[in-house]
Design a binder for these strands. Structure first.
Lengths: 236, 236
DNA sequence: GTATGATGTCATCGCACGATGACATCGCCG
DNA sequence: CGGCGATGTCATCGTGCGATGACATCATAC
């Protein structure tokens, strides 16, 4: 194709109608209604990237596809995340791994905690909660990128480290605390084996290669998962 | 770059010295010594592809890299396998998933069998054998492509079907036979859960994101795996 | 009203990839 | 010897990708 110079009159055609419609009611709260909202663009890019990286992997996901799903121009990835790598890192950093613990504190705010100090005391309760959240993910949501990454052998060092960090924050503490005897010789190995069980079921279910697993009732699956966790963690 | 026509005198410089050296001793058995051996080229391509697909995944593996590792020209992939897809399918079809059963029959030939008829009768032995072969893989070899694919969510339908077929041939029959009661209501689900445990440990170990799992002694890991298989399959 | 920084859009660059076909070389058969 | 099919080699094509910078548009400050 022959290179053309800039074209006048075409770009950025100032959708005043749409803008008037969308920005209508909330002028004082958010003067910048829909368009020209950097935070919104960043968040939409992050959400679209989280979906696509989980569905198609890093190499299989193009920035153009992410931008299209986000309804945003692909060049904004470079502006807000520095490039594909930065976007991927942001996705890993925001990955919940398992469904967040949603509790309301005294003021009614929603908080998401994996309480590291009290875990040992309430180990049994916490384990049951983790299992419930995992079963919840089996019901509703596909496996996240971090969960999948635990079983991916093609990660570079940075991605592997970020994955390990997220699993270490979100999953391992509870399982470590539930391993009996606490602090025993193999407690770390047993916690990681429990991770393989929980996340392995999650990921294999999303992958869909094992038909009975993909079709199984999540509650029934939870019963088996509980038995397996007890077997490896030594709870009874 | 300006297109150039064919260059005379350069290509195919007839390494007579190397050929004479390598083909030296076995003229009658294999007249075509090293060069010009289609079978060898095919096999080297397949072996290199199996390594690289397992290390870097499908999208992360280039045909040029496969050809380089195989010591072969990249165009031969098209000739012998029709393209990248065909090469990948060939790798899946040849994937042993777990280390092959090596037995010697009466004539001393080496055979690799997963005996489907006798499995039920010898279920316990077979399960122990499968576990031993899996532990052996933990000692020596990285997880194969099929094993990894059980936990990959970015497969197309053909790759998923091929993966399911290989797992169904090589792993599931033994675990199905070991599920108690045999043919019970959840035997299929339990066999698939056992697959997730065995292959999940294998793949996560190769992935290297969980440090204690990656560093664990294979024999000790085998003890835990055995307990988990017993828990889900109902053997005791 | 105008200057300025923030935000969004577009065209294009260079690169790596898979695929392809033309051509060279070899071994064999008559 | 001469033809021919099998095998190997090379150059190149088209494509899609990530990255980049020039430019347009908007919101706000003054």
């Amino acid at each position: 194709m022959i290179p053309r110079g800039p074209v006048v009159g075409q770009p950025g055609r100032a959708d005043r109608v749409e803008r008037a419609l969308r920005g209508g009611g909330e002028a004082t709260v958010t003067p910048t209604a829909q368009r020209r909202d950097a935070r919104r663009s960043r968040e939409r890019l992050l959400a679209a990237a989280a979906e696509l990286f989980a569905e198609r992997g890093y190499a299989g996901t193009s920035l153009r596809a992410v931008a299209e799903r986000a309804g945003v121009d692909a060049a904004l990835v470079a502006r807000y995340y520095g490039g594909k790598d930065g976007l991927y890192r942001a996705v890993l950093a925001a990955d919940p791994v398992v469904s967040p613990v949603v509790e309301e504190d005294d003021e009614g705010d929603v908080v998401d905690v994996v309480d590291d100090d009290e875990t040992r005391r309430r180990a049994a309760d916490e384990l049951a909660g983790l299992l419930a959240r995992t079963v919840d993910r089996w019901e509703n949501s596909p496996a996240t990128t971090v969960s999948q990454n635990v079983f991916r052998c093609d990660l570079d060092d940075a991605a592997r480290a970020a994955t390990a960090e997220r699993v270490g924050e979100r999953v391992l503490p509870l399982l470590r605390a539930a391993a009996e005897p606490p602090g025993g010789p193999d407690s770390e190995l047993r916690a990681e084996l429990a991770t393989v069980i929980l996340l392995g079921i999650t990921v294999a279910r999303t992958a869909g290669t094992l038909p009975a697993l993909a079709a199984a009732d999540p509650e029934e699956l939870g019963v088996y998962a509980r038995a397996l966790l007890d077997a490896v963690l030594g709870c009874r």
